[in-house]
Amino acid sequence: MSEKIKFTIDGKQCLAKKGQNVLDAALENGVYIPFLCHVKGVKQAGSCRICNVKVAGRTMTACTTPVAPGMEVENDIPELHDLRLAIIEALFVEGNHFCPSCEKSGNCELQALAYRYQMMVPRFPYSFPQKEIDASNSKILIDRNRCVLCKRCIRSFQDDQGRNLFAFKSRGHKVEINIDKECAVNLSDELAQEIMDVCPVGALIRKEKGFNEPIGTRKYDKKPIGSEITSVV
């Protein structure tokens, strides 16, 4: 039996396994720290920055910070609330997130975070970038207008030889998600659905299966994201 590490989040006593990151440990202790790029069991990227918490006055991403004994984590404080909302708003203006026409609407984690934090309008000007859509794959449509570059798909999906199904192309503001045409030539319907579910936004859409659930029955229509862990105060 490995020894548990004691630490606190907003004063609440928590226990973590050795080497466990703050985010996973928080979720296991019933504390919700919001996140977009994290996938349980997959190597952390720390790319979305939404899980920012404060430790000893410094802001750090909960997903990439291992729990240390006696660590005092600040999570649910106004400063971080505003920081997280600012990141969500920045993601909205950086892409073309027109929710009413998106198949993922209602099940989208970015949208759900905006709901949870009651984003009425982003504080930044919209950039309306020009992005290409790739519909060449028979099962998956890539709509880069909605991509938040979280790398969830890159980290989550490999073929039987360990080759990534997805990869970034280009750098800086030109960076875009791409699908390996050879590796992804014969995707099953189940895998296509899994890919769509891993994508936190509507950038990876399973073809021929859109708008399946009526408004009111979708994942985040009635309950805020994370409410199964901590309800919105």
Partner: peptide, 18 residues
């Protein structure tokens, strides 16, 4: 008061932006 997505972010007509 901006009412609705179009007033807030251009909405459907803004698909022509760019």
């Amino acid at each position: 008061v901006s009412v609705g997505e179009c007033a807030i972010m251009g909405g459907l007509p803004a698909l022509r932006n760019g």
